[in-house]
Amino acid sequence: MLVILAGILLAAGLCIAGPQATNPVPSIFEPHSTPADSILDLSNFVLGITGLIFLVVATLLTYAVVKFRSKAGEAQREPAQVYGSTQIELAWTVIPILIVVVLFLATARVLHAIQDAPKPAAAVEVTAIGHQFWWEFRYPHLGVVTANELHIPVSDPAHPTPTFLKLLSADTDHSFWVPQLAGKTDLIPNRINETWVDPHRTGLFLGQCAQYCGTQHAKMLLRVSVETPEAFQAWVNAQKQPAIQDEKEAAGRRVFENTACVNCHAVGGTNATGRFGPDLTHLMSRATIAAGAAENTKENLRLWIQKPDAIKPGSLMPAMQLTDADLDALVRYLETLK
């Protein structure tokens, strides 16, 4: 316990010591959103109480172990045979019950505050759909569809603009977890769940799928980019545009539209309307590919198309078996999808 507490403090220290830029450690001890904040307050209270219980009981145990050891050379007499004591039993029954009452009331308050929070009119609504092994984000009121990298506005406590996420799944169970913003909520097929966040500062927040969902559960990563209202609006405006049609890369576009790519991927404004894989309309606006498994670079795109298993073995992206010429053309086309 002491070791754990020390570790927790150390971890908290690591986070705080970091520069003001977003810390890559997604620690629950460095929250930046109301749900995560109130969970941390409650957690600190619970840690305090359990720490105290540990100190008391462990001290008693240690005392008993040291004090009542049988001494060598002592006469072989048995100690006094004590069978029990009703008063003592009552004491150590009633005190824990009181502690339980206190902990329960504290918990119920936070539960209500988070789960039953009203949705303000200014809230941004996002539908998050879990797929094996990536995230689909749809903004129904803004007409935006994207994948794996969620963009949301910062929420000023004076004029809150929280983001409410409706959580769905296209296949197996997943769980949405960005530790610094909120606790987990699962995405379960045939069921609608909801969670909300209201980040108090801009920056990049990391998370990942937290419910085992199949072979590549480990690389179903999640990035949340929290932006100023202006930057968010600019991002939305850019995302709403159909794909750029660069006639110089018509050859690559032909490869895309004449192979299996279109069965799974959509590119806005073209006849590629697949829903099985991420929407690629603004592929190049994303920092990563393969749900955060690799940086979005030319080399990685090429590798991902030709040999997905090299980046993410077991992902549902098939190896496309293209000729080098087609592959180069395709990658050049994808790079125009800004």
Partner: peptide, 8 residues
């Protein structure tokens, strides 16, 4: 403590 559990 269910909210703590959402994190853990």
């Amino acid at each position: 403590v269910s909210p703590f559990d959402w994190q853990l």
